[in-house]
Write a protein that binds this DNA or RNA. Structure first.
Lengths: 214, 214
DNA sequence: CGGCCCATTGACAGGCATCAAGTCCGGTGG
DNA sequence: CCACCGGACTTGATGCCTGTCAATGGGCCG
């Protein structure tokens, strides 16, 4: 993960937009900036050529958004919660890339890092059953969720976004959450707090995805 | 698309393995070579952490495989048909990248190009109905299929691979093909020959995905 | 000619999308 | 402080889609 050196004036530590909603339309526009998320959660939204809207990725603190991998952004970044992020111009980013390429003989790890969430989504929604998708999704985001003191972590995502990400309906997401709770695999004292109690059971479900008893 | 200059000795024009099957296990191994496909079709296969096998991409002539985007390959490349490809070491590829970065001020377009198919799959299997997925898939690969003289093009992919790519069953793929034929949207004189007759209808199906009359 | 793999077709049951109604929650304004 | 309101979540009922199983057909190769 590339981090701008402290004290460099190239980087701005700004917090905008403070409120959830549209961050900036990035899709199909030339990318001239790179953003590194510091606090909050953002969603990557893609409008397919036919006009369908899909949430294709979630971004957490530490993720970089808007890398110039394909001349154009592939998605629109939207704020799910309040965001704090660092912006740097693509020119600066390019120089860092060349340095890394020459010194280490390797690409910036960040190049793959932004693509990974999108790649991961493909694997997750490739599962046949909704139960498997929900479990695989929870397992994948769980390490990135901020701790809430006790064992629980904050899952600050609307179910509508989760549903779009998993290519299913909000109702199905809700029902799966309920089944996971009823079967003691997770604890959700509040809607935005979650704790995985039985990781092994979750992983098993993520594979076979057979329905839980209900 | 990056193409090695003709006559450069860095590049080998070899044809191996000549027969379909395992090309080379690339997943989770450091990538030291880049391959450019010249003839044939390859499939990208990913084994998830839980052990599930999924076809996550198809590669056609002109595509590059094995770019060092994330230190490790994300999938295993397998030959679907006989393959001819060009190999170049990652060192050489890196130099080309630095040159491109410095001269044009942009990344090699190829970096995004390899990721695009994977990205596209996410959008395709994000659709709810199988009809929409099949139509979106056909529309996406159609321009890359070699022409067969008359209007038809060669679709040299086993339905089992298509099914895995679309996260569905081979039977459903077969049934969807049949419906498309019966409704006059496509013509398939043979199993490996296809012609899209009604592009507009296909696009409409790719969006709403409502079932065809049957 | 026989065996094998893939494609095809049918029957069936289960999962899930959809619709609809009810509940919970935060925000807003009186 | 409280009533109101809108949005998101929850839960139930229903029907279609599609995954699964099974059997058949067809092409390719030995």
């Amino acid at each position: 993960m590339h981090r701008p050196a402290a004290g460099r004036t190239l980087c701005y530590d700004i917090a905008m937009p403070p409120e959830p909603g549209q961050l900036r339309s990035l899709q199909r526009e030339p990318s001239d900036h790179v953003y590194e998320l510091r606090r909050g959660i953002a969603r990557g939204v893609t409008i397919s050529h036919e006009g369908e809207r899909q949430v294709t990725a979630f971004f957490f603190p530490g993720d970089q958004i808007g890398l110039p991998v394909s001349e154009c952004y592939r998605f629109t970044a939207e704020a799910v919660t309040d965001l704090h992020y660092v912006r740097q111009t693509r020119q600066q980013w390019n120089e860092a890339l060349i340095r890394s390429c020459r010194d280490d003989g390797r690409l910036l790890p960040a190049i793959g890092a932004e693509q990974d969430p999108v790649f991961q989504r493909g694997l997750i929604i490739g599962r046949s059953s909704i139960a498997a998708r929900v479990c695989a999704f929870l397992l994948s985001v769980y390490p990135r969720l901020p701790q809430a003191g006790d064992g629980t972590r904050r899952l600050d995502l609307p179910q509508t976004d989760i549903a779009s990400y998993l290519a299913t309906s909000p109702e199905s997401v809700c029902r799966q959450f309920r089944k996971l709770r009823d079967n003691g695999l997770v604890a959700m004292p509040r809607r935005d707090l979650i704790e995985i109690l039985d990781r092994g059971g979750m992983q098993a479900l993520a594979v076979c995805g057979r329905a839980l008893t209900n």
